[in-house]
Amino acid sequence: MSVIIPKKSADEFFEKIKELSGQDIKLCMQCGTCSASCPMSEHMKCTPRKAIHLAQLGMDEMLHEQNTCWVCASCHTCSVRCPRGIDLARVMEAVRQLTLRKNENFIEPSKMTAEEIKNCPQIALVAGFRKLTS
């Protein structure tokens, strides 16, 4: 990987994440407990630990290219296990919100097939749309 120098000040990005999540990502010591605990990490291009590292470095553009926050199921396993007390689920929410609040969807409800919708219990649709649509 080539060295990328973040364009914006890293502090600005921390503050935004802190404002949205209430979490101080600088506390992370990169132990990797989150990645090891995550039931979805195998499907992430970048594990939770690495995602936090990108955030720590203020590399927001690179972070947005990852699918970490879009694969996260908000199960809070990482949050309850983090030895530094970071509620990672909230950090993931903050990263999702940075995109969703620009009126961008991760999934498109109107493109789902009738069969897919009819099979789902209603809570899947409610929860999925809340987490993955703007």
Partner: peptide, 23 residues
């Protein structure tokens, strides 16, 4: 017992959910 089934990601990442549920 307290592992996550993948939850709402059945809409976003069905494969990841299948793996989580399978485990």
């Amino acid at each position: 017992a307290a592992m996550c089934c993948g939850s709402y990601q059945v809409l976003g990442n069905a494969e990841a959910v299948q793996d989580a549920a399978g485990k």
